[in-house]
Amino acid sequence: MRTPRAARGITLIEVLVAITIFAILGVMSYRAITQAVDSRERLETEFNDWQRLARAFGRLDNDFQQAATRWTGSAARATPAMQVTRQDDGSMRIVFWRMDTEQGARLSGFEISNGYLDLLRWQNTDRTLAPKREHLIGGVRAARWSYIAQGSKNWTQDKWPPTEERGTELPLAIRLELDLDKFGTISRVFVLH
């Protein structure tokens, strides 16, 4: 007597088909999980990069808000409020007096050189001594500074003070354009008090 087909069990081909389906589902699940983890890591890295950039611009803004003219000597002579210098190697440095609430007038500045935007801090008032340096932004391909002087409607490129007679003045605003490896060109305007 013959047994009905339903009672005979699972054939080898049916088992192989089931294993193949489970293997395909496993590979697809693994790929989905791997892509989700990779996407999360990329997003975290990009978020951290944007945070560093925002902190750097915050430092720039904070220092420029504290920029002031420093008067020295009994004859009430003023030292230059801000000086911009460009070096032969293409680096550019802005040095200015920053009013520190604890230490009074301090020399501060920013320099763009060797692919970095650096914060500069002098321990005393001697500009000829080397400042302490802190990297704020890396991957800087190029930078352009421009300024608006009092009574002017045009931006002055890469030069401050506009004339020697106006050396004790601070600009009304400073614009910085950075060409960055990761972000492309970013422009920011800093309004001085």
Rank of each mutant, 00 (worst) to 15 (best):
L25A: 14
A78R: 08
A78S: 11
S108Q: 11
Y30E: 08
L117P: 01
T79A: 06
I24L: 14
A68S: 12
Q66P: 00
E111V: 04
R52P: 00
A32M: 13
L43P: 00
G104M: 01
T128N: 11
T45Q: 15
Y147V: 02
E14P: 05
G9A: 09
W155P: 07
E14A: 11
G115K: 02
R8C: 07
T20L: 15
Q65V: 09
R106C: 00
R86V: 10
N124D: 12
A36T: 06
R121Y: 09
R42P: 00
I13D: 03
G109K: 07
Q123D: 14
P161G: 05
R55G: 02
F57K: 01
L178S: 06
A56H: 05
I186K: 13
A130G: 05
A36R: 10
E134Y: 08
T72H: 05
S113P: 00
Q65E: 13
T85Q: 06
G167H: 09
T168S: 12
S91M: 07
G58F: 06
V140M: 04
S39H: 10
S113I: 01
Q103F: 15
Q35E: 15
S146P: 04
L119P: 00
G184F: 08
A23G: 10
T163L: 04
V140S: 03
T85G: 02
N154W: 13
T125R: 13
T34N: 02
L178E: 02
N48W: 13
R106S: 04
T72N: 02
D49S: 14
R70M: 01
E41Y: 15
I137A: 05
P161I: 07
Q157L: 08
A6W: 04
T20D: 07
T128S: 13
T11K: 15
L117F: 10
